[in-house]
Design a protein around this nucleic acid. Structure first.
Lengths: 226, 226
DNA sequence: GCAGCATTTAACAATTACTTAATATTGTAA
DNA sequence: TTACAATATTAAGTAATTGTTAAATGCTGC
């Protein structure tokens, strides 16, 4: 993601808008604001924010209604909406989620929590775009949704690391993944584990999926062959 | 929704009652009125309105007290209550919501705003009724309306958290829900509870519904299997 | 304020996943 | 072919996650 993430803040109380705007700006976001539901919808259409912070209680059009309307605008279907409210009862939460809310923060808003939430939403957004939930190679299928692998329609459950490794290799059949690449993507670049760890996992995969699928390229790494 | 929506207007000032009655009638609603809290409760029990407009300041029994009492009447639990008040301070709003109010309009009431609010409440009410309240997987049925679970036609009552967890997992059979996901959707993302809380609830479900339905995906989360 | 249930915590056990270490085997370049 | 570095194979050790209980805490209706 290269662009600066955009956030629209909607609250009828200018003080709250200012506090939020200040904190979010510090967090490096591109912030705009609106004072009510109507204005929010108008501005959102032009601004196209990734996230909208929406007060539940507002004059004229309340947040829940605004949320419903926003969710119906095609260019904003992927916009995440976070509600702000003084009440945190189940009732409100429920109708908020019915209206299409993605998260919920109760007032008074603590800047740290807010920023954390926003960050985690962006992380999720980016992840979603990268990830495909199903790799379908005919004989072999890998379903991230259920964390299952299908081999000739036989269902196989794999432990996490094996699954991730398999998923990585199968994401580009025929491509050779270097050990460094595998290490970085499956284990994370900070984790330090021994040389043999990858081999052992490959072995497990060969055992469970079939030897011929996993080709060693000596000195380089491994590749998956259909 | 085929019936004409019913609204009960409660205010000690006959002029205000008349204005509201006039505007709401134009809006196509079936309107009745009461002049104080006591009368309101009496009439509400018979009239069974979907919405009650309740003045906060009234002689004898104020709106907040009346609201609390109304919310305790079983046949009126689904009735939405909108407060009317000359004051719009936070203080009033808070105690109104504590009493179970669903919305709030400050006087002088602008007919347009009033009608819009009412309309949006009805829209929400209807939407809720339309929404899937029953998950039917054959052997297993989960009914949101009654908060009951049917297992091979045997009725099982679950406590709220267990129910919500079950409902979430069963909403997408086969999908693995991560612990974070479960936490966010069942507990709310702000709530902080210990690591073992989810496990304990899963355990209860396994105990009551059956072990084989709930699959652990170690390192990821849980999924429901039919 | 108390009874009864719901929910959470905490401590520990059990299980599973992951890593390592030791050794064997393989592929390849000289 | 030989030497040797890279990889394979095991089994065992270690770490991480989840399961289980019981007890503590919270909550709700009387």
């Amino acid at each position: 993601m290269s662009k600066i993430p955009k956030i629209l803040v909607v609250d009828d109380d200018p003080d709250i808008v200012e506090i939020l705007r200040y904190n979010l700006s510090l967090g490096g976001y591109d912030v705009k604001s609106a004072a009510n539901g109507k204005e929010a919808i108008k501005k959102a259409k032009i601004f196209l924010p990734e996230i909208i912070l929406l007060d539940v209680m507002m004059p004229e059009m309340d947040g829940i209604e605004a949320c419903s309307l926003i969710k119906e605008i095609p260019s904003l279907v992927n916009t995440r909406i976070i509600f702000l409210s003084a009440r945190s009862e189940d009732y409100t939460q429920l109708s908020a989620f019915d209206a299409g809310a993605d998260d919920y923060i109760s007032k008074p808003v603590k800047p740290k929590i807010l920023l954390k939430k926003i960050e985690s939403i962006f992380k999720r957004l980016n992840k979603k775009n990268e990830e495909i939930t199903l790799i379908d190679l005919g004989e072999v299928k890998i379903d991230r949704n259920s964390y299952l692998v299908y081999l000739k329609n036989k269902e196989i459950a794999l432990p996490r690391k094996e699954f991730e490794l398999f998923y990585l290799l199968a994401s580009k059949p025929g491509k050779v993944f270097t050990r460094d690449e595998i290490m970085g993507k499956v284990w994370g670049s900070e984790v330090v584990v021994g040389d043999r760890t990858i081999d052992v996992h490959i072995r497990k995969l060969r055992e469970k999926i079939g030897v011929l699928y996993f080709k060693t390229v000596k000195g380089i790494g491994y590749k998956f062959n259909q």
